[in-house]
Design a protein around this nucleic acid. Structure first.
Length: 871
RNA sequence: GGGAGCUUAGCUCAGUUGGGAGAGCAACUGCCCUACAAGCAGUGGGUCACAGGUUCGAGCCCUGUAGCUCCCACCA
C-alpha cells in the first residue's frame, strides 16, 4: 500500500471491478427480502451538482447497508427528459445557429432533441459513477423510454375513462417566453415593486364615475364587468347598470359579488375573466363573456384595438398615457405585490384562459392524504408531512398539457368528422366512432412530472404484471430534497395508490439544500456552484461523501466548505494509515479466530467498543440518522482504534512471544475488518481498497455481511475496568504538560494499592502510553518522596515525583482546585439523593449510579485532604 | 394572513424516547515517539436567543417574545 491515501489511484478501478462482478445487479431472489430505492432521475440537461451528490450519497449509503444486511437491494437509476427545461435549452442552442422550432418542424426538432439526449444523458450517468453510486445500471431508464410511454398512456387513458382527466377552458399560468401552460407548482412568486393605477370608469348616462385600481392596466381590454360588494351601500344603486370601459368605449355591467372587498381600495373591482383567476370565478358566477387580450408570446391581440401587436409592457405604458390625457387617471401609487415567474426561464407568467388538459385532484388527493396520516408512508423528518397536508388539502386541478414538442404527446385524437375526442393507448388512424380517417392527435405534450409520477412502477414494467413489479413494488425508501414535495413526492403517492392500489414507498427521507460557504443557495447566476467532480478529483469521492453526511441532521440545509471536505479526507487518510500499519504487522503472522486467543484487557476493551459501535451504527442507519452514524464511526476509528488501541498494542507487536504477537495481530485484523465493513456504505472506495489488502480478504467487501452485534463479545466489565487504566494514562500525560515536563521524559509512578491487580496486568500499557519507566506500589504518600505531584483517581491515587519541576505552592493550589471540584460533585450528588422526588420517581438505575458516584467522590475527597495535609 | 425551521464554544454544526453540554475547524502549550505533520499529547473557551410554565430533573416538552431563513395563500 502507498504511504499516503491517494484515492485517484484506485476509485475508478474499484468501480469498474464492482460493475464487472455484477455487484450492483438486483435480480429477484425469493429467498431474500427485497429492498427497493428508486433514484430521483436527474434531468438530462443537467450536470451533477452538490445537491445531486448529497442525494445520491444518501441513497447509496442506505442501499449498500441493506445489501450487506442480506436484502435483495435494488437501486434503480434513470434520467428525466425534463420537458420544458430541455426544450428551452435546445431552442437556445438552435437560436445561435439561426434556427427555430418552426423552421425545423416537429419531426426535425424531435430528431435534434433525441440527439441532445444521446449526447448528454450519458454525461450525468458517468458523473454518478464517480460518486460510487451502486445502482443497477442494467435497468437504467429514461422517462421517455418505450416502457415509460406505455405506462403514461395506460394511466392517461384510465384516468380519462374515469373522468379524472378532462379538457377545458380554464385559467392557467402561461409563460410567454416558453409559450406553454404551467401548473400551479411551476410558478414561483416574488415580491416586486409595481404600481397601483387608479382609473375612473364613467357610469352609463354620464356624470358619475367609479374609481377602480389595477396593477395591470393593459388587461382592461378584457374587462367584461366591474364588481362591487352586494352589501356596499355606496354602490348599491349602480348594481345592474352599466359603465363605459375607457378607451374602448363599450358598455360593461356593474355586478354584485362577494369578491369585491369594500375595505380594499375603493371597493370597486374591474373584472377580467380571461386574465385573473378570481375574476374568472366571478365571470362564471355572473355569466360574463371571457375576452382574451393577449397572444401566446405576451403581445396584445386584436381585442386591444390599436395596441394590437404591442408587447404587454409597452401596451401598459401607452394605455396609462392615454388614460392620463383623457383625464381618467386619478393617480398612481407605488405598490409592492407578488408576481409569478416561470420556474424554468423566470419570465413573468400571465394568468390567462386557455384550453388545456387537467387532472381532477379532489378524489385522488384524499387517499394520498390518508396514506401519510395513517403512516402507510412515513416522512423523515416528520415535519414535512405538514407541508404535504397543507398542499394536498388545498390542491387545485393539475394542468398537465404543455405547448411543447419534447415530451410524451397527449394520447388523444380528435375526429374532424364526428367531432369525437378519443383517448387511446395505441396510435390510431381511423375514428373508432365514425370510421373517418380525418383524425388528428392532440398537438401538446404532457407535463414532465406526469411521467415522473409513475416512476416507482413504470420502471418495473407497469402496466404489465411483471415479476419485478410484484417483487420490488412497493419501494422502501425515497430519498429526495424537500423542494420537490409537490412536484414529485405528492404525485407519486397518489399515482401509486390510484394505479397500483398500493403506496409507492414506505419512508421518504428528505434532505436539505447544499449551500455555499456564506449560506447562499448555489446557483448558476451567482456562479457560486461547486463542481462535485472537482472535489472528488482533489479529495476523493469518499471524503466528499463523508462531508455531505457528517454533522447534518435530516432535512436541514448544510453549508459546503472545502475545509470540511479536507477534514474528511484527513479521516480517510487516517483510516488508510492505520490499516497500513495493521497490514504491515500482519505479514507473516498467523491470524486466529478470537476464540483461540488469550485476550488482553486492551483487546477486550476494543472488542467491547466495537460491539457498541456495531449496535449504534446499525440503529442509526435504520433510522436514517446518517450524520450520527458517521460521527460514531469517526470517533471509534480515530480515537478508540488509532489513538488508543494501536498504541496499546505496539509493545505487544514487538514482543518475542509469537503467540502474543499473533493474538494482537488477530485482534487488530478482526476489529479493522469489522470497522471497514461498518464504514463501507459511507466510504465504499477506501474501505474496499484496504479490505483487498487484508490477509483475510475474500473478493470485495461490498458483498460481505454487515457486522452484527454479538453479546458474547460485549465484555462490559472488562471494558469498564480498562477505562480506569486509561484514566491513569491520561492523568500522567496531563501532569507532564502541567509541569512542563517533555512527554519523552520517562517518569516513575507511585501508585496506591487499591487496584493493584488490574494495574499490574496492564503495566506495560501504562508504561508505554504514559511515558513512564517504572511503577511502584505504595501504601503511604511518603514513599513517593518529596516533590511528587498527586492525582487522585477513582481507582487509585497516583504520585509522580517531578524533582525540581514541582512547585510546592502550585501543587497545593492544584490540589485545592481538585478538592473544590470533588466537593462540588459531592454536593451535586448528595443534593440529588436528598431529594425525595428524585429517589421515588427517577429510575432505579440512575439512583444507584448516583449513590456509586457519591461514594467514589467522598473517597476521593478523603484522599485529596490527606494529601493536602501532608504538604 | 397561515405554517415550518433556525438561534448551542471565535467559526461551521451535532445533540430523536427529558437524567451530569459535544465534534470538526480556529486558538494556546509541548512533541518529527519507525502507520499517519493530511500526525501525536495536553489546555482554554458555552446563563444551550429571551421570559414564563410542566417536572424530582429541561438544550430537549408546553406557552409567549425577539431576530434570521424558508414554504403556502392573498394581493382588484
Amino acid at each position: 500500500m502507498e504511504k499516503t491515501y491517494n484515492p485517484a489511484s484506485f476509485e475508478d478501478r474499484l468501480y469498474r471491478d464492482w460493475e464487472e462482478r455484477g455487484c450492483f445487479k438486483a435480480v429477484r431472489d425469493d429467498d431474500k427480502i427485497p429492498f427497493t430505492v428508486m433514484m430521483p432521475p436527474p434531468n438530462i440537461t443537467g450536470q451533477l451538482h452538490m445537491g445531486h451528490a448529497m442525494d445520491e450519497t444518501m441513497q447509496d449509503v442506505v442501499v449498500r447497508f441493506k445489501r450487506m444486511q442480506g436484502y435483495c437491494a435494488l437501486w434503480l437509476p434513470g434520467t428525466d427528459h425534463a420537458a420544458i427545461a430541455t426544450e428551452v435549452k435546445i431552442v437556445e442552442q438552435m437560436k445561435k445557429e439561426g434556427l427555430s422550432k418552426e423552421s425545423l418542424g416537429r419531426e426535425g426538432f424531435l430528431k435534434r432533441a433525441w440527439e441532445w439526449k444521446d449526447k448528454y444523458a450519458g454525461r450525468i450517468v458517468e458523473q454518478l459513477k464517480k460518486l460510487g453510486s451502486s445502482c443497477d445500471w442494467s435497468r437504467l431508464t429514461f422517462t421517455m423510454d418505450e416502457k415509460c410511454s406505455r405506462a403514461v398512456r395506460e394511466v392517461f387513458v384510465n384516468l380519462f375513462n374515469k373522468k379524472l382527466i378532462y379538457r377545458g377552458n380554464r385559467i392557467i399560468n402561461w409563460c410567454p417566453a416558453c409559450k406553454t401552460a404551467l401548473s400551479d407548482a411551476e410558478v414561483e412568486y416574488s415580491e416586486e415593486n409595481g404600481h397601483f393605477w387608479h382609473i375612473k370608469y364613467e357610469a352609463e348616462g354620464g356624470g358619475v364615475f367609479l374609481e377602480i385600481a389595477t396593477t395591470r392596466p393593459e388587461t382592461m381590454f378584457g374587462d367584461t364587468a366591474v364588481a362591487v360588494n352586494p352589501g356596499d351601500k355606496r354602490y348599491a344603486h349602480l348594481i345592474g347598470k352599466n359603465v363605459v370601459l375607457p378607451i374602448v368605449g363599450k358598455l360593461i355591467p356593474v355586478v354584485a359579488d362577494e369578491h369585491a372587498d369594500p375595505e380594499f381600495g375603493t371597493g370597486v373591482v374591474k373584472i377580467t375573466p380571461a386574465h385573473d383567476p378570481n375574476d374568472f370565478e366571478v365571470g362564471l358566477r355572473h355569466n360574463l363573456p371571457v375576452v382574451r387580450v393577449m397572444n401566446d408570446d405576451g403581445t396584445m391581440n386584436a381585442n386591444a384595438g390599436k395596441y394590437e401587436g404591442l408587447d404587454r409592457y409597452e401596451c401598459r405604458k401607452r394605455v396609462v398615457e392615454e388614460l392620463k390625457s383623457a383625464g381618467l387617471l386619478v393617480n398612481v401609487k407605488p405598490q409592492v405585490h407578488s408576481v409569478g415567474h416561470c420556474y424554468r426561464c423566470h419570465s413573468t407568467v400571465e394568468p390567462l384562459v386557455s384550453k388545456q388538459w387537467f387532472v381532477k385532484m379532489d378524489k385522488l388527493a384524499r387517499p394520498a392524504i390518508d396514506a401519510v396520516t395513517y403512516k402507510k408512508i412515513s416522512f423523515v423528518p416528520e415535519r414535512f408531512a405538514k407541508i404535504y397536508y397543507n398542499w394536498m388539502e388545498n390542491v387545485k386541478d393539475w394542468c398537465i398539457s404543455r405547448q411543447l414538442w419534447w415530451g410524451h404527446r397527449i394520447p388523444v385524437w380528435y375526429c374532424g368528422d364526428c367531432g369525437s375526442t378519443i383517448a387511446s393507448k395505441v396510435d390510431i388512424t381511423v375514428c373508432p366512432r365514425c370510421g373517418s380517417g380525418n383524425i388528428a392527435q392532440d398537438e401538446d405534450v404532457l407535463d414532465t412530472w406526469f411521467s415522473s409520477a409513475l416512476w416507482p412502477f413504470s420502471t418495473l414494467g407497469f402496466p404489465e404484471d411483471t415479476s419485478d413489479l410484484e417483487y420490488f413494488y412497493p419501494g422502501d425508501v425515497l430519498v429526495t430534497g424537500y423542494d420537490i414535495i409537490f412536484f414529485w413526492v405528492a404525485r407519486m403517492i397518489f399515482s401509486g395508490i390510484e394505479h397500483m392500489r398500493a403506496v409507492p414507498f414506505r419512508d421518504v427521507l428528505f434532505h436539505g439544500l447544499v449551500r455555499d460557504e456564506q449560506g447562499r443557495k448555489m446557483s448558476k447566476s451567482l456562479g457560486n456552484g461547486i463542481d462535485p467532480l472537482e472535489v472528488i478529483e482533489k479529495y476523493g469521492a469518499d471524503a466528499l461523501r463523508f462531508s455531505l453526511l457528517q454533522g447534518v441532521a435530516p432535512g436541514n440545509d448544510m453549508r459546503y466548505s472545502d475545509a470540511k471536505v479536507e477534514a474528511c479526507r484527513n479521516f480517510m487518510n487516517k483510516i488508510w494509515n492505520a490499516s497500513r500499519f495493521v497490514i504491515m504487522n500482519a505479514e507473516g503472522a498467523e491470524i486466529k479466530p478470537l476464540s483461540e486467543i488469550k485476550l488482553s484487557p486492551a483487546d477486550k476493551w476494543i472488542i467491547s467498543r466495537l460491539q457498541s459501535v456495531i449496535r449504534d451504527v446499525t440503529l442509526a442507519l435504520n433510522k436514517f440518522e446518517l450524520g450520527i452514524a458517521c460521527q460514531i464511526l469517526y470517533d471509534f476509528m480515530w480515537s478508540d482504534f488509532c489513538d488508543w488501541y494501536i498504541e496499546l498494542v505496539k509493545p505487544v507487536l514487538r514482543s518475542e512471544d509469537a503467540a502474543k504477537r499473533n493474538g494482537a495481530v488477530s485482534v487488530l485484523i478482526f476489529v479493522l475488518e469489522n470497522a471497514l465493513k461498518l464504514l463501507h456504505p459511507i466510504a465504499p472506495f477506501v474501505t474496499d481498497e484496504i479490505y483487498r489488502n487484508l490477509p483475510t480478504a475474500d473478493g470485495t467487501i461490498m458483498t460481505k455481511e454487515f457486522p452484527r452485534y454479538n453479546a458474547k463479545l460485549a465484555y462490559k466489565k472488562d471494558a469498564q475496568a480498562f477505562a480506569g487504566i486509561m484514566d491513569i494514562i491520561k492523568a500522567v500525560r496531563a501532569v507532564k504538560t502541567e509541569v512542563d515536563c517533555p512527554p519523552s521524559k520517562k517518569v516513575h509512578l507511585y501508585i496506591t494499592t487499591d487496584s493493584k491487580r488490574l494495574i499490574t496486568v496492564n503495566e506495560d500499557s501504562i508504561l508505554k502510553l504514559a511515558g513512564a519507566k517504572e511503577i511502584t506500589f505504595i501504601t503511604s504518600a511518603a514513599e513517593a518522596g518529596e516533590n511528587a505531584v498527586t492525582k487522585v483517581l477513582p481507582i487509585c491515587t497516583l504520585y509522580i515525583p517531578m524533582g525540581e519541576l514541582v512547585d510546592l505552592e502550585k501543587e497545593k493550589a492544584r490540589l485545592t482546585a481538585e478538592l473544590e471540584n470533588v466537593t462540588a460533585e459531592i454536593a451535586r450528588a448528595d443534593g440529588k439523593l436528598q431529594n425525595q422526588g428524585f429517589l421515588s420517581k427517577a429510575p432505579k438505575k440512575l439512583v444507584d449510579a448516583e449513590h456509586a458516584k457519591l461514594e467514589k467522590f467522598i473517597a476521593m475527597r478523603e484522599k485529596i485532604l490527606k494529601q493536602l495535609k501532608s504538604l
